[in-house]
């Protein structure tokens, strides 16, 4: 179970994502932005951060990296790809997911433990969740406002492509409270909040049992290991 984690210049959460893969029971494989070789991984995580300093637009320059050419090709062939935060921005800039992400409507960086509803469990990244399960994972972004034109939104809602929706509080002005999407095939999933920061008790969001004990993010990584095993 080799899960690739891509590092671009300016990526921050690659080590956390690698650690999340290992805690879930997989082997984390570091992928480098300038190397188009995917090293026979079974899935790819595009982690969060500020790739290329958010120059031009968040994720826009990363989307042109050699490794992305291989990932786009492999994703179109069914390889599971998860984009987290800046990784989600890379996915929309790569046109693997529709729409765009703009500066938060509150005009400030937002960092909080965020409640989400998992609205789609038919993907390699969400199959260990229950439909409409509420999860809490950290959210930290400056440009997380999801937008798309009316026609695209209608299609996303009509075809059930909204994978995660903000619950109780919309932190960034995202249309329809959209926190994350899946593609038609389901193998590509992107979201702004950070599952890799909620995988080990003591270091996650506060939960009812104890402070910092939230591990709701682990489901993402267990899901992909489960789907790879069954593939």
């Amino acid at each position: 179970m080799r899960i690739g984690v891509v590092t671009f210049p300016g990526t921050l959460d690659d080590r956390d994502a690698q650690r999340a893969v290992r805690i879930a029971g997989g082997e984390a494989v570091a992928l480098w932005h300038a190397d188009e070789n995917l090293h026979k991984v079974d899935a790819v995580v595009l982690p969060g951060g500020f790739s290329f300093g958010d120059y031009l637009r968040c994720g826009a320059i990363a989307a042109q990296a050699p490794v992305m050419e291989s990932i786009i090709k492999a994703a179109n062939g069914g390889l599971p790809v998860l984009g987290i935060c800046n990784g989600f921005q890379v996915l929309v800039e790569s046109h693997l997911l529709p729409g765009g992400l703009i500066r938060n409507d509150v005009q400030t960086f937002v960092c909080r433990d965020q409640k989400l509803v998992v609205e789609n469990v038919d993907t390699p990244w969400t199959n260990q969740f229950k439909l409409n399960q509420e999860i809490t994972i950290p959210l930290k972004n400056g440009e997380g406002g999801y937008i798309a034109d009316a026609e695209t939104l209608k299609r996303l809602e009509g075809e059930g492509l909204v994978a995660f929706r903000y619950k109780d509080f919309n932190p960034n002005g995202s249309l329809n409270d959209i926190a994350g999407l899946r593609n038609e095939r389901g193998n590509v999933v992107g979201l702004m909040p950070h599952p890799e920061h909620a995988v080990e008790a003591g270091f996650g969001p506060d939960a009812s049992v104890a402070m910092r004990s939230g591990v709701d993010g682990l489901g993402f990584f267990k899901s992909v290991l489960n789907s790879v095993v069954n593939a």
Binding site: R57, I147, A148
Partner: peptide
């Protein structure tokens, strides 16, 4: 295609 994003 690159310097702008037609969505935004």
């Amino acid at each position: 295609e690159f310097l702008s994003n037609a969505v935004i």
